[in-house]
Each structure stands twice: as C-alpha cells, then as structure tokens.
C-alpha cells in the first residue's frame, strides 16, 4: 500500500508528541503528589493510536480505554486540555470530573473513554449503529487491551456488530500483559484476532510497533466498514514497556523482555524508514522532538497554573437540562 509521505510524517509527529507526553508524566509521577490519580501510560505502544487515527477522518469516532493518552493525542485532542484534566484542574477538558482515566473529548469525536475493561466495545457498537442508522459515511474504532477480550462485553459486542454489519473496527492493542498476567496466563487463544472467526468477521494480526502496517490495516478495514461489509477485529501486537500503572514495579515482567521490546520502539522504526527514503532529515526529526517537548512543557505549565475546580462544582454536570 502506497502511504503518502505527509501521512507518514503526521504519524511520526503524533508518536513523538505522545512519547513526550508520557515521558513527562512518568517523570512527574516520581514527585509525590504532583499529579493525582492512577497514571496509566502507553509508552512504547504509540504506533497503535497513531497508525489508527492517521487512517481516520476527523468525523470518525474513537472509543478508548484507561490507556488513552496516545489515542486522544493522535485523534487531535488539545494537549493543554488533556494535561489540565490529568492534573484535575478546572481548565481540563472535563473540568476535573474525569481525571487521567476517563478523558472524554467529544470535540474530536472521542466522546467515551471507559476504564471498565471491555466496556468500550458495546459503546462503540452503539456509536456505529447511529452511523449506520443515519447512513453516514463514517466509522467507529474501539481501542481495548488483550485483557478486555476475556470480558463478556467483548463477545456480545462482536456478535451484535457482525450480525448488523456495523461500521466498527475493534482494535485490540495486545501489549502482552493484562494487569500482572502475561497473555498466555489469561487465555489459551493463540491470537485475540482468532476470536473473529467465531463471529464470522475478519480478524487480522498486525505488528503493532509498525505504524505503517497499522495504518494500512486500518485503512482496509475502514473501507470494508464503509462498504457495508461490517466490522473487523484488528489485533496489534505490541508491548507494555511500563507497568500497568506508574506505581507497578513490573516485577513479573522479565528485564530481558522489556529490554528487547524497547529495542523495537516504533518511533525510530518509522523515522529510520523516512530517513532511508530521504523523506526527512535528522534536523527535522530533532525539530519535531523539540516542538513536542515544548508543547508538553507548555501543557504542564498551563495545567499547573490552572485552578482546581471549586468544591461546589462537584454538583454540576450530572443532569442535562
């Protein structure tokens, strides 16, 4: 598949931005009390969100999960609004109601982030149903982890989406760990994608650290969805370089395994490819990195300077008028 160079540069940019974002948060977590809550990062997994979102149009919808930051940034969410929400400040995209875990950014069509494992899939089915019902030319993508494939909601959602040929793409970001369980400790299914067969939909295994492969697969499944042929289950094999959250000591992940996967980092993989093709210079890459770091620094300053919501604002936003 021929991928336009501008798309490749866009993917490189969103991966670099996501990495700067997560590296900064990881550092901030080392200072007690600076960022509240449970910090769950996607360090090393950026190719999935970047590849998927680059293949989407702005009107396409994503439903994401607890490991959402890189998906949301790749979908175009404002880093300042995200960071302020992660800091639980009133200027955050959800006014401090969601915090780092439930970031909702409907303005970039990322309306639902669920931290209940597997819950995103039925929600995505509903979004895709609305798209089909209104005969819109857009699709819904649901991001979830390998652990979510063990939930009943996964199976109910795949079955219904297949039955109704809904324009939804189920993207399993298989980072090899569900909590402290390695993949083979929580299921005997060889690949999550194998489960697609049970629902009569295509299932595909993709190298989740190869952003171009992710982009190509998503593009194909998106076209399929738009043609009325229904959902696809795309399993992106990647690796959780950090713990489940930043407080997880990762004692159950072999050091050699972590080291080896760090060597498969998706960012140099793409930038080396672009350099080899003469599509980018080392200076341009350094500029991208500097720009991303500056944006994240600005987002942190914005978040730290922002006020917390007033206590009584807790009572707002429960009900629609």
């Amino acid at each position: 598949m021929q991928i336009p160079v501008e798309k490749k540069r866009e993917m490189l940019w969103t991966m670099i931005l996501s990495r700067a974002f997560s590296d900064t948060l990881s550092e901030l977590c080392k200072t007690q009390g600076r960022v509240p809550g449970m910090m769950i990062l996607s360090t090393g997994q950026e190719a999935v969100g970047s590849g998927v979102c680059a293949a989407l149009l702005p009107e396409d919808v994503i439903v994401t999960n607890h490991r959402s930051h890189s998906h949301l940034l790749a979908k175009g969410a404002d880093p300042r609004a995200l960071m302020a929400e992660i800091y639980c400040k009133s200027t955050g995209c959800n006014k401090g109601k969601s915090g780092t875990l439930h970031l909702a950014v409907p303005e970039v069509n990322a309306p639902c982030t669920s931290t209940v494992v597997g819950a995103g899939l039925p929600l995505a089915v509903g979004q895709a149903f609305a798209q089909q019902y209104r005969e819109e030319r857009r699709v819904t993508v649901c991001f979830f982890g390998d652990g979510a494939a063990d939930e009943g909601s996964f199976h109910e959602a795949l079955n219904l989406a297949s039955l109704w040929r809904l324009p939804v793409i189920f993207v399993c970001e298989n980072n090899l760990y569900a909590g402290a369980q390695r993949y083979e400790e929580h299921t005997r299914t060889r690949h999550v994608a194998d489960r697609a067969e049970g629902y009569a939909i295509p299932g595909e295994v993709v190298d989740g650290n190869d952003v171009l492969a992710v982009y190509a697969s998503l593009t194909k499944s998106r076209q399929r969805a738009l043609a009325g042929e229904g959902p696809t289950l795309l399993e992106c094999k990647t690796y959780r370089c950090h713990g489940h959250s930043e407080s997880d000591p990762q004692h159950y992940q072999p050091e050699e395994e972590i080291r080896s996967w760090r060597g498969k980092c998706p960012i140099p993989r793409l930038s080396d490819n672009l350099l080899a093709e003469g599509r980018i210079t080392r200076d341009e890459i350094r500029e991208m990195q500097a720009k991303a770091e500056a944006m994240v620094r600005d987002a942190v300053s914005f978040a730290e300077a922002s006020p917390y919501p007033l206590a009584e604002e807790a009572l707002e936003d429960v009900w629609a008028d």
């Binding site: 309306p111 995505a124 089915v125 149903f129």
Partner: peptide, 13 residues
C-alpha cells in the same frame, strides 16, 4: 450488555 451499550453509544451520537 450489548443492548444497553447500544443505547448508551447511540444516545451519545
């Protein structure tokens, strides 16, 4: 679960 999820997702849309 899918019925209720259908409702929640479609309503948001």
């Amino acid at each position: 679960a899918a019925i209720a999820g259908l409702a929640v997702g479609a309503a948001e849309a």
